[in-house]
């Protein structure tokens, strides 16, 4: 029984990692309906910025927690900058074009940013210092829940709640929702749509940076390509939860994190009830995608997405 519990917790932690990246993804999508393929790259740049900060402050004698906070802030600031610049250069001129043009522009941006970091930094995997300190109170259960796991779980829940409240309650959030519903109408009502979209990119990219620094600290190493797989999984999670929906991104991430381990869980379950069926872990990603397809066939707008209303 303990095995299943451990599997569940491990799955939820992985899910929280996906959610953390998916939140920014889904937010940008919610406002301008663009699958921002370069989001994973922003996440990677956040991790590298964090690394640079950690490297610069490593000898300063600051406590690790202090370095972590500075790394997070620096990562968020610079990633917000990258996000805004990217939007200005690659997406804004295409706002009136067909929906697929910005998608291709995003793919180009993603290739560009990957190679930019490859050339500016290195092609190798570089060690990322463990910026999240070991918490004393977690010692007894540290094999179940490490301190980085806890931090990631807490931060992604906080981000989800914060983001939801921000969009529900603040003036800017209202402007965002209006822009998401109808850009032209929002503009007529005096909302500066360009500013709202820039802001969306800023927030989304800053969130990616939080993910980048925390997850890099969790896995202990980064290279220029980590954004690709992370972006793909986050995109999957966002769609699974209903793209554009913020609680959906969280839920989608968690479901994906647990579902990915179905091969292991099922194999163990079959062994327990005496059946000799082994589903190799090799098919982990395939199982996750199969599940995604199944869920979307029965709920075509994702778990928490609102079904699109057909206007005639």
């Amino acid at each position: 029984m303990e095995f299943y519990l451990e599997m569940l917790i491990a799955g939820l932690i992985r899910g929280a990692i996906y959610s953390l990246i998916a939140l920014g993804y889904t937010m940008v999508y919610g406002i301008i309906e663009l699958i921002n393929f370069a989001h994973g790259e922003i996440y990677m740049i956040g991790a590298f910025t964090g690394l640079v900060v950690a490297g610069l402050l490593g000898a300063s004698g600051l406590p690790t927690l202090g370095i972590l906070v500075i790394a997070l802030v620096a990562g968020m600031v610079f990633c917000a900058g990258y996000g805004v610049t990217m939007e200005k250069v690659a997406y804004k001129p295409l706002r009136k074009a067909s929906r697929l043009s910005p998608l291709i522009s995003a793919i180009g941006m993603s290739i560009f940013l990957q190679n930019y970091v490859l050339l500016a930094q290195t092609s190798d995997f570089v060690p990322f210092p463990r910026l999240i300190p070991e918490f004393k109170f977690l010692e007894p259960i540290s094999h179940l829940l490490g301190s980085s796991d806890l931090v990631i779980l807490v931060v992604s829940s906080l981000v989800m709640v914060g983001l939801t409240l921000f969009i529900r309650l603040t003036r800017l959030g209202k402007a965002m929702r209006a822009t998401a519903q109808n850009q032209k109408m929002a503009m007529l009502l005096g909302i500066d749509v360009n500013q709202v979209i820039s802001l969306t990119f800023m927030i989304g990219s800053a969130l990616a940076a939080i993910g980048g620094v925390l997850i890099a600290s969790h896995s202990g190493q980064i290279n220029f390509y980590i954004g690709f797989l992370a972006g793909l999984k986050a995109f999957t999670a966002a769609v699974l939860g209903g793209i554009g929906s913020i609680p959906g991104a969280m839920l989608g991430g968690l479901v994906l994190g647990v579902a990915e381990n179905l091969p292991i869980i099922l194999s163990a379950f079959f062994a327990d009830i005496g059946l000799n069926i082994d589903i190799p872990n090799d098919y982990k990603d395939a199982v996750a995608f199969c599940l995604l397809i199944l869920i979307l066939i029965f709920r075509p707008s994702g778990l928490l997405g609102r079904p699109a209303i057909k206007k005639v």
């Binding site: 095995f3 896995s219 797989l229 292991i264 090799d282």
Partner: peptide, 21 residues
Amino acid sequence: LFEGITPGEPDYETILLKVKQ
């Protein structure tokens, strides 16, 4: 146990759990 893992994931906790199992 003879299993594959996907390179590039943030961690490999679950396969270790299976090893233990």
